[in-house]
Nucleic acid binder design. Structure first.
Lengths: 244, 244
DNA sequence: GGTCCTTCAACTGTTGACAGTTATAGGGTC
DNA sequence: GACCCTATAACTGTCAACAGTTGAAGGACC
């Protein structure tokens, strides 16, 4: 055994680099809002918390910077990005562009089986949603059980690894921060379901042109909904990045 | 004076982090093909060359990884990405998506003055191209003088910082590797000029829909041209990353 | 009492050494 | 002569300490 750094945290198995582990934990914290937008991140603090040196922490933070999730100036403290309304709009415009084309490609490339499965799951998800509709109050169940993500499925259907990475990776990280803001009222959710269904019909008909157009409208409406419902500029919880 | 690391390389002023400097140098080398696709990158070697420790080199490489320009597995040597034809196709599909929307936005948001200036420069560039058409043989002038880049201008006209960053930053890095492969024959160049002109007319007419459509076709044709002219799988020059 | 300058603490950038892992080259066996 | 196993070398991951920079608290001066 190398050094038995006496780590209390899970840390998983020790074959994957520490930086990877730290990165995923930091990502989760940003998602959960433990590290709220604008919060400072202190390398040494994180290092001490995980009982590792600053090297891996540094690497994790570089990658967060690459994901555009934190901003860093030479000697300044690193901060979690804080999207202005303008930047959020830009984000959605980009998503619109990519997800539109992804949807078109999906209409051309998804197998009949995949489409059929998606139809099935979409129906299943709707029923599940109608049941558990009133529990959107407090605690977001810690592990995000297995939220059926229609968009992700479509995107993956595009068979374009680069677009998949962008939407399900980099962009998705940012969108997630935004998503948890307005917990999507039931009304919008039902409308979204209808729109999803329309899109899926177009894909089933192999009408890429229509599918792209519908997806664009859908994403556009989602953005509009997000921007018109006044944004509660992220309540409190800034700072204090340590859990215990 | 701190330590006078006795560095012979430019290294610029010493206020900007070393990692930044190293990153830009490595980027340039990848562009120039000194570090060809598939070439291995050795941290220690780079560190010794720049007379710095491995820390900054590591950071620079993490950022290259973030830009998707190098691939890294836990304990394996880092390699400059080598795009398969499939991946290149994906790259162009993504570019098509983003540049299409960027073009639409540009049609809506560019000022009349910007458009007029672009018209002027496009005409100027055509004349310049017609003159210096036969010098595309050997040496690519070292500093890339100030190549008028129609696409970049359009993209920037979109006023969407995120799309601009993606296309002029991350994606552009990769496209640049590809671009230097086939040095665009004069025939295609002339056709591209015509297409540029069409796009610009649509923008001038504020027809975003048309502008997007035209840009998509344009990028699609460029991709097609690149893929049909058989790709000379990057001749030699692998390895030996040290200049002198 | 307010403003400016000085000093200090906190944090980031950088370094060199050590530990662990992978790949390669060499020898031994079939 | 070909294949497998073993040992070495090269390289990456990690660490702890040092150097330089920034921002703020405290005191001196107007």
């Amino acid at each position: 055994m190398p050094k038995a750094t006496g780590n209390s945290a899970p840390k998983a198995i020790s074959n994957i680099p520490l930086a990877e582990t730290i990165l995923s934990v930091l990502l989760q914290r940003i998602y959960d809002g433990v590290l709220a937008p604008g919060a400072h991140i202190n390398e040494a603090m994180i290092a001490e918390e995980f009982k590792v040196s600053r090297g891996p922490v540094r690497e994790a933070m570089r990658r967060l910077q690459g994901l555009q999730l934190i901003t860093r100036a030479p000697y300044l403290k690193a901060r979690v990005v804080e999207l202005t309304q303008e930047e959020a709009r830009e984000l959605f415009e980009m998503r619109l562009a990519l997800e539109g084309v992804a949807c078109r490609l999906a209409a051309e490339r998804m197998t009949a089986e995949e489409i059929q499965e998606l139809v099935h799951e979409l129906e299943q998800d709707r029923q599940r949603t109608l049941v558990g509709n009133n529990e959107l109050a407090g605690k977001p169940s810690t592990d995000a059980p297995k939220v059926f993500d229609f968009h992700e499925r479509i995107v993956r259907g595009s068979r374009n690894g680069r677009i998949i990475d962008a939407l399900c990776g980099d962009l998705y990280h940012l969108l997630r921060i935004y998503r948890r803001r307005s917990g999507m009222v039931a009304e919008r959710k039902s409308q979204a379901y209808a729109e999803h269904w329309q899109i899926l019909r177009a894909i089933k008909a192999r009408d890429g042109e229509l599918a792209e157009s519908l997806m664009r409208s859908h994403v556009g409406r989602a953005a509009e909904h997000l921007f018109t419902t006044d944004l509660p500029h992220l309540t409190g919880d800034v700072g204090d990045s340590r859990p215990a």
